Deep mutational scan, measured.
Amino acid sequence: YKPCFVCQDKSSGYHYGVSACEGCKGFFRRSIQKNMIYTCHRDKNCVINKVTRNRCQYCRLQKCFEVGMSKESVRND
C-alpha cells in the first residue's frame, strides 16, 4: 500500500476512498459519526504528519477531506 495520504505513516489499506493508516481511519470515522466540530488555534494550515497529526484535529480533518476521504462511505453502525 501507499503511505497514509493524510499523515504519511504506514498505511493499513484503503479506507474511505484513500490509502490511510489505522489512526487516521479511526479519527475520520469518529469525527464523522459524532459530527465533531473542531477549531484550529493557529492559522488553519498546520502541518499534518506522523509526529504532528494529534496536535490539531481541525487541520487533520481538513486534510482528510483534501486527500479525498469520503464521509458518505462512513457507516453509522
Results as ranks from 00 to 15, higher is better:
Cys56Tyr: 03
Asp77Asn: 05
Ser12Val: 11
Cys24Val: 03
Gln8Ile: 00
Ser73Gly: 11
Ala20Trp: 02
Cys7Lys: 01
Cys40Asp: 01
Tyr38Glu: 04
Cys64Phe: 00
Ser19Tyr: 09
Met36Asp: 07
Val67Tyr: 02
Gly13Lys: 05
Gly23Gln: 13
Val18Gln: 10
Ile32Gly: 03
Ser73Glu: 13
Lys25Met: 15
Val6Ala: 02
Glu72Asn: 12
Lys44Asn: 08
Phe27Tyr: 03
Lys34Trp: 12
Phe65Leu: 11
Phe65Met: 12
Gln8Asn: 10
Asn54Lys: 15
Cys40Phe: 01
Val47Asp: 15
His41Trp: 11
Glu66Ala: 08
His15Ala: 12
Lys10Thr: 13
Leu61Ser: 00
Ile37His: 07
Val18Ala: 13
Asp9Leu: 02
Val51Gly: 09
Glu72Ser: 10
Cys40Gln: 03
Tyr1Lys: 15
Ile48Ser: 04
Cys59Pro: 01
Asn76Trp: 09
Val6Gln: 00
Tyr1Asn: 15
Cys64Gln: 04
Arg29Ser: 13
Tyr14Gly: 06
Ser31Met: 04
Ser19Ala: 11
Gly23Ile: 05
Ile37Thr: 08
Arg42Gln: 14
Gln62Lys: 14
Ser73Lys: 14
Arg75Asp: 09
Lys2Val: 08
Val51Phe: 14
Tyr14Asn: 10
Glu22Pro: 05
Ile48Asn: 04
Tyr14Glu: 10
Arg42Ala: 15
Arg30Trp: 02
Lys25Gly: 10
Met36Thr: 12
Ser31His: 06
Leu61Cys: 02
Pro3Ile: 10
Gln33Ser: 10
Ser11Lys: 06
Arg29Thr: 15
Arg75Asn: 13
Arg29His: 15
Gly17Pro: 07
Cys40Pro: 02
Gly68His: 02
Phe27Cys: 02
Lys63Tyr: 04
Ser19Phe: 08
Ser12Ile: 08
Gln8Ala: 12
Ser73Thr: 08
Asn49Arg: 04
Glu22Ile: 05
Lys34Asp: 15
Gln33Tyr: 05
Lys63Gln: 05
Tyr58Ser: 08
Gln8Phe: 08
Cys46Trp: 02
Gln62Thr: 11
Gln57Asp: 15
Lys25Arg: 09
Glu22Gly: 05
Met69Lys: 00
Gly13Thr: 09
Arg53Ala: 15
Ser31Phe: 06
Tyr38Arg: 03
Cys59Phe: 01
Val67Thr: 07
Thr39Trp: 08
Val51Asp: 15
Cys24Asn: 00
Gly68Asp: 02
Tyr16Asp: 14
Arg30Glu: 14
Ser73Trp: 08
Lys34Tyr: 11
Pro3Phe: 12
Arg53Leu: 14
Tyr1Trp: 06
Asn45Phe: 06
Cys40Gly: 01
Val51Lys: 10
Asp77Arg: 06
Lys10His: 12
Cys46His: 04
Ser12Thr: 13
Cys64His: 02
Cys46Gly: 07
Ala20Met: 06
Leu61Asp: 03
Tyr38Leu: 06
Arg53Cys: 13
Asn35Asp: 14
Cys40Met: 03
Gly17Gln: 05
Arg75Gln: 15
Phe65Ile: 14
Phe65Pro: 03
Ile48His: 03
Phe5Lys: 04
Asn54Ala: 13
Val6Tyr: 00
Arg42Met: 15
Gly68Glu: 02
Lys34Gln: 15
Gly26Asp: 15
Lys25Ala: 15
Arg29Asn: 14
Asn54Tyr: 14
Arg53His: 11
Tyr16Leu: 09
Val74Gln: 10
His41Thr: 14
Ser73Arg: 11
Pro3His: 11
Ser19Ile: 13
Asp43Gly: 11
Phe65Asn: 07
Cys59Leu: 01
Arg42Ser: 11
Phe65Asp: 04
Ala20Asp: 00
Lys63Ser: 04
Ser70Trp: 04
Lys44Leu: 09
Thr52Asp: 12
Arg60Tyr: 11
Ile32Gln: 06
Asn54Met: 15
Cys21Thr: 00
Lys2Asp: 11
Ser11Val: 06
Met36Gln: 13
Gly26Val: 08
Arg53Ile: 14
Gly13Pro: 07
Cys64Val: 03
Ser31Asn: 03
Gln8His: 13
Cys64Asp: 00
Arg30Thr: 02
Ser70Thr: 13
Val51Ser: 11
Gln57Arg: 10
Cys56Asp: 03
Tyr16Met: 07
Thr39Ile: 11
Phe5Arg: 04
Lys50Ala: 14
Gln33Met: 14
Ser19Pro: 09
Arg75Glu: 14
Tyr16Ile: 07
Tyr58His: 08
Lys44Pro: 03
Cys7Ala: 00
Lys34Ala: 11
Cys46Asn: 02
Asn49Glu: 11
Arg60Thr: 11
Tyr1Ala: 09
Asn76Pro: 14
Tyr16Phe: 12
Ile37Asp: 12
Thr39Pro: 05
Asp43Ile: 10
Ile32Val: 12
Arg30Lys: 14
His15Lys: 05
Phe27Trp: 01
Cys24Ile: 01
Lys34Pro: 08
His15Trp: 06
Tyr1Leu: 08
Cys4Ser: 01
Gln57Thr: 06
Arg53Glu: 14
Gly26Thr: 10
Cys4Ile: 00
Lys44Trp: 06
Phe27Leu: 01
Cys64Trp: 01
Asp9Glu: 10
Gln57Pro: 14
Met69Ser: 02
Gln33Cys: 06
Gln8Thr: 11
Ser12Arg: 05
Lys63Asp: 04
Ser73His: 09
Val74Lys: 06
Thr52Ser: 12
Lys34Thr: 09
Arg60Gln: 11
Gln33His: 07
Leu61Asn: 00
Cys4Met: 02
Leu61Gly: 03
Gly13Asn: 07
Cys7Asp: 02
Met69Pro: 00
Phe27Gly: 02
Val18Asn: 03
Val67Ile: 07
Lys44Ser: 13
His15Gly: 06
His15Ser: 11
Tyr14Gln: 06
Ser70Cys: 09
Phe65Gly: 04
Cys64Tyr: 00
Gly17Lys: 07
Gln62Ile: 11
Cys46Ser: 03
Asn45Asp: 07
Arg75Phe: 06
Asn76Lys: 11
Arg30Met: 04
Arg30Tyr: 00
Cys21Glu: 03
Ser11Glu: 09
Thr52Met: 11
Leu61Tyr: 07
Arg60His: 15
Tyr16Arg: 07
Met36Trp: 07
Lys10Ile: 15
Glu66Leu: 10
Lys44Gln: 15
Ser31Gln: 05
Asn54Trp: 08
Glu22Met: 06
Pro3Thr: 09
Phe28Gly: 01
Lys50Gln: 15
Gly26Glu: 14
Asn49Ala: 05
Arg75Ser: 09
Val47Trp: 09
Cys56Asn: 00
Arg55Asp: 15
Ser11Asn: 15
Val51Ile: 13
Ile32Glu: 05
Val6Gly: 02
Gly17Trp: 03
Cys21Ser: 00
Asp77Cys: 13
Gly68Ile: 00
His15Ile: 04
Lys2His: 13
Asn45Ser: 09
Cys46Tyr: 00
